[in-house]
């Protein structure tokens, strides 16, 4: 090994040690634990081996897990496309305005505010009998909705808040992408008579595609792990996070409850691996999309 090589590895050492301790070992341990029944009060190596029964249980007997899986799926499949589309619109609208800094700041505020706090504020806005949103609805002659209190609308309420809070980040990324598009492209388009919608479709969108894909796919990975909003918006009002009747139960929330409320570490580990496989699948799609989107560094 040359001296230079040794130096390089030395610079890498802290990161490598960290990944060995906090990543490789825990990931393998989690896999081991997913076949055990363990409450963390006994030594882990003595925990009884239960084979595949944790996996079997969550997919066959455990109705809450399947509910959490479908809720999370709906959450990801709705919030991410909606938020992406909305942020494209906003980025295009803000771009080129005279006071664009002001608008960006406005949309930036929710993205840096603690999600728990956002969730709690929205919980109040959603209150059925004296909430702000219902009184606005009433002012327009519309009937009140039960929002978080009704299993039919609870998840929708949370998705609205999530889009509200997340759209700013996406908008800023796309805005940065817009700024990278050379003005000459637009000038050339103007000479060709392309304006408005056509200009967007033939110039802006293709050049913005890497940024859009980035927003979309990272949003997806985050959405599958949604936790903060659910805890903040459902626990104080309904006592138990994920309610009413598990209508807002998500994967990570249920894992959290299984592990740290029911002390069922084996089952929670099995769920974590299921989530891992799902997110991995999405990430592989991500890789492919990114390649096609022209980003080679990934």
């Amino acid at each position: 090994m040359s001296k230079r090589t040794r130096t390089a590895w030395l610079f890498l050492l802290p990161v490598l040690i960290f990944y060995a301790i906090f990543l490789v070992f825990p990931v393998l341990s989690s896999f081991f634990l997913s076949f055990r029944e363990w409450n963390m009060l006994t030594p882990p190596l003595q925990a009884p081996n239960v084979g595949w029964s944790n996996y079997k249980y969550i997919f066959t007997e455990d109705r809450v897990f399947l509910k959490a899986l479908s809720n999370t799926f709906i959450y990801a499949m709705v919030t991410v496309p909606v938020s992406t589309a909305l942020s494209i619109l906003l980025a295009v609208l803000v771009y080129g305005r005279r006071r664009d800094g002001f608008w960006r700041l406005l949309f930036f505020l929710p993205t840096i505010t603690t999600p728990v706090a956002i969730g709690m504020v929205w919980m109040y806005l959603y209150r059925p009998n004296y909430g702000l949103i219902n009184s606005i609805l009433n002012a327009f002659g519309l009937h009140s909705l039960d929002w978080l209190n009704n299993p039919a609308t609870a998840l929708l309420s949370i998705m609205i808040t999530a889009v509200w809070a997340g759209v700013g980040t996406n908008m800023l990324i796309l805005y940065a992408g817009l700024k990278d598009i050379p003005e000459t492209y637009y000038e050339a388009a103007a000479i060709d008579g392309a304006h408005g919608w056509r200009r967007f479709w033939y110039i802006t969108f293709p050049l913005l595609k890497p940024a859009i894909l980035f927003v979309f796919v990272t949003g997806m990975i985050a959405a599958w792990q949604v936790f903060d909003f659910i805890v903040a918006m459902t626990a104080p009002a309904l006592g138990k996070a994920g309610g009413p009747i598990n209508s807002t139960m998500t994967m990570v929330l249920y894992m959290y409850q299984t592990a740290f409320e029911y002390l069922n570490m084996g089952r929670a580990s099995a769920m974590a691996y299921v989530l891992f496989v799902i997110v991995l699948g999405i990430s592989l799609v991500q890789l492919r999309l990114f390649r096609r989107g022209g980003i080679e560094s990934y």
Binding site: P128, N134, N138, H143, S144, A237, L238, G239, K240
Partner: peptide, 15 residues
């Protein structure tokens, strides 16, 4: 608006 402003009865709920 059809909102209840006085309840005849309410159930305990939350846990």
């Amino acid at each position: 608006n059809g909102n209840i402003k006085q309840y005849g009865f309410t159930f305990l709920a939350g846990w």
